[in-house]
C-alpha cells in the first residue's frame, strides 16, 4: 500500500548539507499498522512526510496503492492526497472554525457538494464520538478531543492510508490509550493502512503490527510485532525494548485500569 523506494532527503542547514533520510526503502502492506520509532532527529517524521510529499524526496520514489506520487502533476497530487489522511502532534485544526467546519474543509477540498458535506461531517464526528461537539470551536475541547476531531477530519474522505505524526505525544497516558484504541479500531473496521511515527516505545508496542527502528536517517531494523517474542538485534532496538520493560510503568498500568 505504501512503498518507499530508495528515498532520501537532504536539507541545507546554513552552509552544510544535512542528510535527514539516507537512501531508504520500506514497504507497508495493506491493512498493516507500521510504526517508525527512534530518537528526535532520526529522520522518522521526514520519512513519514514523504509519504504524501509534504516533504519532497531529494531522490527515490514513493508509491501509494501502486501510484507513483513523485511523478504526478500538481493537480494529480492534490487528487492523490485526498485518499491519504494525516494526523499531527499538534492537531492543526482551524481555530476560527467549528469542529464540523474543520471536517467539512477537507470534504470541500474533495469537491463534495454542500449538503453531503454536512451529512458526512456529522457522520465522521459521530464515528469519533464527538457528534455533540459539532458546533464548538477547537479551543473549547480537551487535547484528546481535538485529536479525535483531527482524526475525523483525516478519515472524512475515506482514505486508504492514514499517516500519524506523533499523534499522542502531546497527550497524557490515559488519553493516549484511548486514541490508540481508536486508531486500532479504525484500522480493523475500515481497513485503513496506518503509518505512525512515535518516540514512545509503548505506543509502538501497543498499536503496531510492524515497527521500523530509525537511527541517523536510516531504518536499522524492522521488527514483526505479531511474533510471540521480539528480539531486536541493533543496540538501539535493544535499548528501546529493554527500557520498555523497565518503564512498563505504573502510569501505564494505571491507565489501563482507568479504562476498565
Amino acid at each position: 500500500m505504501i512503498t518507499f523506494r530508495e528515498v532520501s532527503k537532504q536539507f541545507k542547514a546554513g552552509r552544510q548539507w544535512v542528510e535527514a533520510v539516507r537512501p531508504t526503502s520500506l514497504h507497508v502492506e495493506k491493512g498493516q499498522i507500521q510504526g517508525i520509532i527512534g530518537f528526535s532527529g532520526a529522520g522518522k517524521s521526514t520519512l513519514l512526510r514523504m509519504a504524501n510529499l509534504l516533504e519532497l524526496p531529494t531522490a527515490g520514489e514513493v508509491y501509494i496503492d501502486g501510484q507513483e506520487l513523485t511523478g504526478l502533476s500538481a493537480g494529480e497530487l492534490r487528487e492523490a492526497r485526498r485518499s491519504i489522511g494525516m494526523v499531527f502532534q499538534h492537531y492543526n485544526l482551524l481555530s476560527n472554525e467549528t469542529c464540523a467546519a474543520n471536517v467539512e474543509f477537507v470534504l470541500k477540498a474533495a469537491k463534495l457538494p454542500g449538503r453531503e458535506r454536512k451529512r458526512r461531517a456529522e457522520e465522521c464526528l459521530e464515528i469519533v464520538g464527538l457528534a455533540d461537539k459539532a458546533k464548538q470551536y477547537p479551543a473549547q475541547l480537551s487535547g484528546g478531543q481535538k485529536q479525535r476531531v483531527a482524526i475525523a477530519r483525516a478519515l472524512a474522505n475515506n482514505p486508504k492510508v492514514l499517516l500519524c505524526d506523533e499523534p499522542t505525544s502531546a497527550l497524557d497516558p490515559v488519553t493516549t490509550l484511548s486514541i490508540l484504541e481508536f486508531l486500532e479500531k479504525i484500522n480493523r473496521e475500515l481497513q485503513v493502512t496506518i503509518m505512525l511515527v512515535t518516540h514512545e516505545i509503548q505506543v509502538a508496542k501497543r498499536l503496531c503490527s510492524r515497527v521500523a527502528v530509525m537511527e541517523g536517517g536510516a531504518i536499522t531494523e524492522q521488527l514483526d510485532m505479531t511474533l510471540p517474542e521480539i528480539k531486536p538485534v541493533t543496540p538501539l532496538g535493544q535499548f528501546l525494548f529493554d527500557t520498555a520493560e523497565v518503564s512498563s510503568s505504573s502510569v501505564w498500568r494505571r491507565g489501563e485500569g482507568y479504562r476498565g
Binding site: R81, N92, L93, N96, F105, V106, K108, A109
Partner: peptide
C-alpha cells in the same frame, strides 16, 4: 500556524481554497 496550512495542503485542498478557507479565515 504553519501546521494548519500544512494540514490543508495534506488534504489536497486547492490554492484558492487554502487562501479563503485557511489563510483569510485563520487571520481574520
Amino acid at each position: 500556524p504553519k501546521g494548519v496550512i500544512e494540514a490543508a495542503v495534506a488534504s489536497g485542498a486547492s490554492m484558492k481554497h487554502i487562501i479563503w478557507g485557511v489563510l483569510l479565515s485563520e487571520a481574520r
